[in-house]
């Protein structure tokens, strides 16, 4: 006696084969992913532990920066004095020292900051600025985002000056940051000379430092 195979069962056979094959492929992918992630964890090793310490700003906060505005209301206003810690947890104060400065606000995950940093490092190495201080603030930090911690990134890029860690974004808010990278030029009298954001060319970097002492 022969066993009859119904046409319906026969037509479902390819579907079953494909479903089994697809399931196998997904299982293999899962196994590869788990195996490779556990081996990369073993190989991984972090450097000096980074702590996103809180910073503070003393003084009247600057209005949020609007690049489309014809006149920046913050220009001429005395910039708040910033205090906090650097990557080595040393106290760092920016402002109140009668020195002209260019403040640079960077976010570790921002691709524009990542592109601007090597440009700034190269430009500063070629054009030392004895009259103007470079003040750097790292803010907008998020361990879930790429290129964390910022200390590893900026050390890797050979950033030339100490960096103020703004773990609570208090400094960024007080200085009116609305996008990255963000620049605030402060004169020797402590007043804001100009603000700007976005990637800068070498000429624009030069203009920024010139404006700090042009008052």
């Amino acid at each position: 006696m022969s066993t009859a195979v119904s046409p319906k069962t026969e037509s479902r056979k390819p579907l079953i084969y494909i479903a089994v094959a697809a399931t196998l492929v997904v299982v293999v992918a899962l196994v590869i992913a788990i195996a490779s992630s556990s081996s990369s964890k073993k190989a991984g090793g972090s450097g000096v532990p980074f702590v996103a310490t809180e910073a503070a700003a003393n003084g009247t906060p600057l209005a949020p920066y609007d690049e489309t505005a014809a006149v920046d209301p913050a220009v001429g206003q005395v910039a708040p004095t910033l205090s906090g810690q650097d990557f080595d947890r040393q106290e760092l104060i920016i402002g109140g020292d009668k020195r002209a400065k260019v403040m640079v606000f960077l976010a570790h995950w921002c691709p524009h900051c990542q592109r601007e940093v090597p440009l700034l490092v190269t430009w500063l190495a070629a054009h030392p600025q004895p009259q103007v201080d470079l003040a750097t603030i790292t803010t907008g930090m998020d361990p879930n985002r790429p290129n964390y911690p910022p200390s590893d990134w900026l050390r890797r890029e050979k950033w030339p000056t100490p960096v103020l860690v703004d773990g609570n974004s208090a400094v960024a808010t007080a200085m009116g940051l609305t996008s990255f990278p963000y620049f605030v030029v402060v004169g020797a009298n402590g007043q804001v000379v100009k603000r700007g954001s976005g990637e800068l060319t070498n000429d624009q970097i030069a203009a920024l430092f010139t404006s700090a002492v042009a008052q």
Binding site: A107, W109, C110, P111, H112, C113, G140, R145, P146, A172, L177, T178, S179, F180, P181, S197, G198, E199
Partner: peptide, 14 residues
């Protein structure tokens, strides 16, 4: 653009 939105920039690579 030349800038990153502080909250959720489209240019950031996770």
């Amino acid at each position: 653009s030349g800038t990153c939105d502080p909250t959720a920039p489209c240019t950031a690579v996770w």
